[in-house]
Amino acid sequence: MSNDALIDIRGVTKTYGAGETAVHALRGVSLQVEAGEYVAVMGSSGSGKSTLMNILGCLDVPTRGEYFLDGSDVARLSEDQQALVRGRKIGFIFQSFNLIPRTSALANVELPLTYAHLRRTERRARANRALELVGLADRAGHRPNQLSGGQQQRVAIARALATGPRILLADEPTGNLDAHSTDEVLGMFDELNAEGRTVVVITHENDVAARARRLIQVSDGQIVRDEVTR
């Protein structure tokens, strides 16, 4: 086990509740992801893949086990330091886009930069660049409800990219999109990965998983398959 892996989790378990009603979402998962990998995590609903993603994204803490993100032990970080890690190292892309309603696309993309204490002008410039990257520069002033699903997800990708995170964590990113938008979004992931960014996609769709270069199958809280596909 090398310590220089970007993501390094060891023997992680996650239990919700206690006693007889306890639900074991993860039952001892160990996983290493190197920088620059393109990983797909597959599994049926209830398999624990979303719990795994939440733990990888520092949104949730494991019941047992260790998590080293970029060399630092997440369990030792304070609440605020975890927020800082989320903001700087991880870009989230959610199934339901999770844009802030009634707020322009540009302001949405700016938000993580605001939390990272960037200056106003710097923020504006970076957010505009990120929107350009996803081809929505002309929609900067639109609110989420004025955008299509595919456009909203592209805004979300721009937001995830704005801080220049090392890891892109996508949870069913195409679950709410039509075939055309799905292609667009997945094409973007391919490009980002080609540029050297680590991409972890959680999905239950085979064609989405097929774009990744490493496939991890999760079932009943355990990794049952882990192979390099391309």
Partner: peptide, 13 residues
Amino acid sequence: REIGIRKALGARR
């Protein structure tokens, strides 16, 4: 939910 999003994007307490 908005609070959750903000926290995921790095907002501190």
